[in-house]
Amino acid sequence: MRNRSLGERAIWYWRLMRFDKPIGILLLLWPALWALWIAGNGRPTVANVAVFVLGVVLMRAAGCVINDYADRDFDPHVERTRQRPIAAGMVQPKEALVLFVALCLVAFALVLTRNLMTIALSVVGAFLAATYPFMKRYTHLPQAYLGLAFGWAVPMAFAAETQALPLTAWVLYLATTLWALVYDTMYAMVDRDDDLKIGVRSTAILFGAWDRQVVGALQVCMLLALVAVGQLQGLGLSYYLGLAAAAGFSAYQQWLIRHHEKPRCFQAFLNNHWYGAAVFLGIFLDYALR
């Protein structure tokens, strides 16, 4: 590999952290904001919002780095991933590990400004984020494990705002886990052919010809969990209108994946950003209009 200028290194590190593709940040950020607004009764502290937004950006970047490190032998054989920085030989695996550790340390420094319960929960979150990329070697449910990792911001947000983990926190965590299982299965449908060739496991492979039906059932379960959150918190009309809009996005996603076309499946994955935004808007307006 030829020597690279500082500018070239920065560009490839930027791509390794996926800052050129912010969809992952948004999908991780929306549940954190849902939780902060509900736990804070519509008025979360500015400090908590700042810490969680920055923490989401850092940990999503760290997750992308360790994911590419874990998949460095697989990515060159997959059409969608062969140009990733490590797969393309532009970033060395050791460099990626150093970057991963640095990102985690900065994120942990942010968490240290919060209470002890939040700090303790962050250790679990870091473990989930670091181990997720290796799950596809051992189980057909790495998308479910991703949900556990992505959703961990929910109990952390409740801990930061209230120093407690009420039932609402766990029901919202369940909804977030189901949501990640839904959108990451759509994402896995794009790579299914390549994954079968190289022996990588996924829910898209596990569900097979029933993928749309299973994803639809999971979408219904997630919506029911969000309804339960509304009942537990006594949320009103604005919240349920947000859920109705989210249900509409679910229906649109089902329409997109109906023929299992790769570009459409990826479009359905991206559309989940609007699902998350609709739920947050409902929460935000419900508290704002009280």
Rank of each mutant, 00 (worst) to 15 (best):
L167N: 00
F280P: 07
R114P: 13
S122K: 12
V65Y: 02
A10F: 15
I257N: 04
A109L: 14
G125N: 04
K94I: 15
M17G: 07
Q267F: 12
R9L: 09
E79G: 06
M90D: 11
R60S: 02
T203P: 14
Q213I: 02
C64Q: 03
Y138N: 11
D195G: 01
A278V: 00
R258P: 02
V53G: 05
P93S: 06
A39I: 14
L112M: 14
H140C: 14
W37N: 04
L256V: 06
H273A: 11
I23W: 05
H260I: 02
Y239H: 01
N67M: 07
W255D: 03
L206W: 05
T139D: 11
R80Y: 08
G125L: 14
V200T: 01
R258N: 07
R114Q: 15
D191P: 02
L99M: 14
D20R: 08
P85M: 09
M222P: 06
L146P: 01
S5K: 02
P31C: 08
Y239I: 00
A130H: 05
D194W: 10
A278T: 08
A288V: 01
G282H: 00
A88W: 10
V106N: 02
A217D: 11
L146S: 05
G40S: 05
G230K: 06
W12T: 14
A129H: 02
I11L: 15
R2K: 05
V220E: 03
K136Q: 04
V51K: 05
R72M: 09
P76R: 03
P93I: 05
Q213E: 15
F150L: 13
A144P: 00
P31D: 05
E161V: 03
Y173E: 15
M17Y: 07
V57T: 04
I23N: 09
H273W: 14
V214T: 11
L141D: 04
L206F: 08
L206C: 12
A149C: 12
